[in-house]
Design a protein around this nucleic acid. Structure first.
Lengths: 356, 356
DNA sequence: CTGTTAGCGCATTCAC
DNA sequence: GTGAATGCGCTAACAG
């Protein structure tokens, strides 16, 4: 058990004061080269592990208070973005001993104008840091440029935007998601049958970047498998259960070879519900994320599996990462951008239920 | 954001001192009913959230030092129990600011006598707490009774023993493990083919309890599926690659319908390696845990999937749970006995590689 | 039984 | 550019 040195001990060993060691360890500047050299030499043979607890305690003294602005899509209770929101709230609660004022600005994930408006209001807002749900690329980039100018740090949840400089981002590797979706639905369906991948039908909206990557990886899997099983694409309305049902029934009628259905978005339960309502059985269905609707269908047995991006954790980590940066001025190196995805069947659903 | 009260603030509000509030909040006794009543009344309208950081800092002052005894099976590097050991070490390191002396006592997981010897030596050992790998039921129970008498707390990793009183235990739900194994291997193999479940062949050892439960759940799955796919059982030597190869080749020759192989223990990679060595292809294989050997085979593509019990996390949590109990005198309510299992394919293997 | 208080390790302030 | 001093909230020891 190697004895952990404290700042004070390092100070003694190197013949400087603890204040100086602190300045060196945290790159706060205003140190002479000699002092730095002396401390570096001690650090070569001894290890310093910064103590989260005492550090947090000491920070409290400053009574710093942060204004966090969080802008993510609005969402029904128990749906994807609502789970992210809940994760963010958990983070705020967990770090409740730091004084944080949070301000949520929601926008419509299917309406770029609504996002633009939200982001424009944020651009001039007085705040310490921002958490952004990355839905619309151009709007996000435009806001980030302004935040960069103002020196306001930001983190992304559920995406990454090229050309921006976030403190951190938390998302699932969408290629992995798409491949797993393909692999699992392939496994569930008999050889020779067809597999359908379903996309949301929506007027005037382009597919989200995440869905596009998933879809590509999904296709790649089937291409790599050769022509053994063919892939067809369908669209379904996510606005109205009756329209969904009509879309899906029509599709399945004109594609009789299909046995497996994969949804690249988190509203797969709507497909299950549509089939149940129409009294159709015998299809295997896979989707994304342990949302309220999906969990119900898994329990009912009308949905076979989910790829879970763990949205709550993404939100939680976003808060953690941002606070770390606000407190220490540097990103938390231990945090990983790509979060693991869980594969969820009925058997192991229970582990994730307490998040919805 | 509801303002969190500190102990001092509660003390002021209820007209007692902070020491008294601390005694009440942590059930340390020696308080008058009146004081308790006054504080309870304040707590009805205000919320107190105990501050992990300051608490941890304050504890350091006491310079309490704990002697932990950890007794788990010995294991090759990168194998199952070695990953648990590594998780325990990570825990000890993470809490390195608390002074902990750890003492490992390894035993042979296939030799109950070795376990008995190890546990008997522990029974009289001077220590603050114990972590036990639950391999042999009778030996463990016998030790726990003695520890109970001496008031020494203990936690289990990888199991649970009826009739004992551990502070916590960390394991995967073995029924879930067995069902998932069955479901996944079923999905990978064509209908009409057979599936083999492989058990370790070992002289004079009964199957471990975990394996037995997995096997039962595995069988149950196929029984519930009807007779569509039949299940056969095979045994393989885990001591010597050549014997393994001979066992498996002999088995597959006499069971030509088999297309899928499931291992109920974490040495599934030996099956993959045996098939590779024999130049046999075309089988789907599933096993347990992201061990070194299994991870390699997943990457090579000779093993299809793993059910990962996350052994490192189990070990880590064991340390956390024990320290929590040692410091606060009560079990950490937030810790769950059943840990989630991960389903691992080649696509998402990367997330777990840094643990081996 | 109760109140008071030292000090855990660190971040910050402020004389020097 | 530097170091001494302060206090974050809590635990435990101790004096009453």
């Amino acid at each position: 058990m190697p004895q952990q040195l404290t700042i004070k001990q390092i100070a003694e060993l190197s013949g400087v004061s603890s204040g100086t060691v602190d300045r060196i360890l945290h790159n706060r500047g205003r140190v002479s080269p000699e002092a730095e050299e002396a401390v570096r030499r001690v650090l070569e043979t001894h290890s310093y592990k910064y103590n989260l607890h005492t550090s947090a305690v000491a920070f409290k003294k400053t009574k710093k208070s942060f204004d966090l602005v969080i802008s993510i899509p609005s969402s029904q209770k128990g749906e994807y973005w609502d789970l992210i929101r809940a994760g963010i709230e958990r983070g705020l609660l967990e770090y409740g001993d730091i004084s944080i004022h949070s301000h949520f600005v929601f926008f419509d994930q299917f309406n770029s104008l609504s996002c633009r408006e939200a982001f424009e209001s944020i651009a001039t807002m007085e705040c310490s840091a921002v958490i952004l749900g990355t839905t619309f690329v151009d709007e996000t980039r435009s806001l980030c440029l302004k935040l960069d100018e103002r020196g306001i740090p930001y983190v992304f949840v559920d995406g990454r935007i090229p050309g921006t400089r976030p403190v951190a981002c938390f998302l699932a590797d969408q290629k992995v998601c798409g491949s797993l979706l393909a692999r699992l639905i392939d496994g569930l369906t008999p050889s020779g049958s067809h597999v359908a991948v379903f996309l949301p039908r929506r007027v005037g909206t382009q597919m989200s970047n995440n869905s596009a990557i998933r879809l590509e990886a999904f296709r790649d899997y089937f291409i790599a498998q050769g022509k053994e099983k063919s892939l067809v694409e369908g669209y379904f309305s996510v606005e109205d259960p009756e329209k969904t049902e009509k879309d899906i029934c029509a599709f399945l009628e004109s594609n009789p070879g299909v046995r497996g259905i994969a949804s690249v978005i988190s509203t797969g339960y709507m497909i299950s519900d549509a089939l149940s309502a129409a009294g159709i059985r015998g299809f295997h269905i896979g989707g994304f994320d342990v949302t309220e609707g999906n969990a119900r269908c898994i329990q009912e047995g009308t949905l076979d599996f989910l790829i879970n991006q763990h949205p709550g954790r993404q939100g939680f980590y976003a808060v953690e990462a941002l606070l770390h940066f606000l407190l220490y001025g540097v990103p938390d190196k231990s945090m990983k951008e790509f979060q693991p995805v869980d594969i969820v069947f009925r058997e192991n659903l229970a582990y994730w239920l307490d998040e919805i």
